[in-house]
Simulated assay, not measured.
Amino acid sequence: MALRSIIDVAAPAKLNLFLHVVGRRTDGYHLLQSVMVLIDWADVLHVERRDDGRLARHDLGPALPADDLCLRAARALRAASGTSLGADISIEKRVPWGAGMGGGSSDAASTLLALNRLWGLGWPLEKLLPLGLALGADVPFFLRGRNAAVEGIGERITPIEAAPRTFAVVKPADGIETRAVFTSPLVGRSQEAAIVEGFTARQFDDSGREYGRNDLQRAAEALSSDVAAVSSWLEERYGNSRMTGSGSAVFARTSLESTGLPDELPAGWTGRICRSLAAHPLLGWADEPA
């Protein structure tokens, strides 16, 4: 039996504290190692169950494709489950597009979790994960709902306990297509292989700088000079910066007490102070009865 016919759910963004490219599979997919943390910059999804089987988005804008990840997630779950139900999905889009913050993947994960409940399927998390991975490498991370070390193409996820953190996160006007970054000859290559042990043992070096790097940042900066500009802006104000994911957003660690950016952002940029989350707001939804 479904929880209720209408539900509002959060879809938080993530930051990659570091992102190492450690290899490449024969099918062309890059093998990655990263630590990803959830933050309180989040979209809000409004999902309503339909009895006629129709699936629809009602807020598609120029930055979103007509066949976006939310609809793909809903179609995949409907096909796999055999349900005759449908849904209307609307999103209050707050996380910027093309930022490397996982906004679309998070929306897809929250869609799967919400429809699993609204349709009364009662699927456990392990049954949703393959659907998520088929939609995108970051979707399983959001489905699991914990800060984590992530390896492979996103399928190997090890939860970690991360201390509360505060970040200044800024995205320039440009978004960057993930495929363009990964196909760039400027993508770096790291040798570190034991990211969980390495991260916990070397989270900070003696100078206080964050462990590791983002091996995609050089390629992203070549595609968009604004990435380097944002990085410099943050370095001048916080003494550190790093791109998240495949860009174009860049973040800086700041004090836990920070409440706002120190200066007005240049035209076209968007940003805010973000807090890390201990867990996804929907953690446990796939393990509880509908």
Rank of each mutant, 00 (worst) to 15 (best):
M243H: 04
E210S: 15
R78N: 06
S84H: 09
A134Q: 12
K171N: 01
R165V: 12
W119E: 04
I273W: 04
A73Y: 01
F182T: 01
T200K: 09
G284F: 12
P289A: 00
L64Y: 01
R24G: 08
G136T: 09
V21D: 03
V169H: 07
D8P: 12
W123A: 05
V44S: 05
P96C: 08
K14I: 04
R57G: 07
S207G: 06
G122S: 07
E192C: 07
A13H: 01
L223Y: 04
R75N: 11
R94K: 13
E210R: 11
R94P: 00
G122Q: 12
V187W: 02
R24M: 09
V35T: 06
A219R: 01
I7S: 12
A228C: 14
T183V: 02
R165N: 12
T259E: 08
L216H: 02
F204K: 15
F182P: 05
I176C: 04
R24W: 07
A99G: 13
C274T: 11
T254V: 04
D40S: 04
R237Y: 11
L77P: 05
W123F: 10
L216E: 06
R25N: 05
G239H: 05
V187Q: 03
F141S: 07
C70T: 05
I6R: 09
L216F: 00
G102T: 03
L71K: 01
L112M: 11
P262S: 08
G132Y: 02
H58D: 01
T178L: 06
G145C: 06
I160T: 06
V21G: 02
G136H: 09
L133D: 11
W123Y: 06
A108N: 14
L118G: 02
G122A: 04
A79P: 15
I39S: 03
R253H: 13
S276P: 08
G122C: 11
A42K: 10
A56L: 13
H280R: 05
V187P: 07
R144F: 06
R50H: 10
D174K: 14
P185C: 10
L128P: 10
G23V: 02
M243I: 07
R94Y: 01
G239F: 03
A286K: 00
A219K: 02
L15Y: 00
W269Y: 14
T200C: 09
G212M: 13
L143S: 11
L17D: 04
D287N: 12
L45S: 08
K127A: 15
L216G: 01
S106I: 06
G260S: 11
I6G: 13
R24Y: 14
D59T: 08
W233V: 05
R4M: 08
V47D: 01
A252P: 07
G136I: 03
G132N: 05
A79Q: 12
I157P: 13
V181T: 02
E48I: 03
V37C: 13
L265C: 15
P289G: 09
G120H: 08
A267K: 15
A63L: 11
S276R: 02
L129N: 06
R253G: 15
V181G: 08
V95I: 15
G260K: 15
R213K: 13
F167Q: 12
C274G: 15
M36Q: 05
S184Q: 00
Q191A: 10
P172Y: 00
A229G: 14
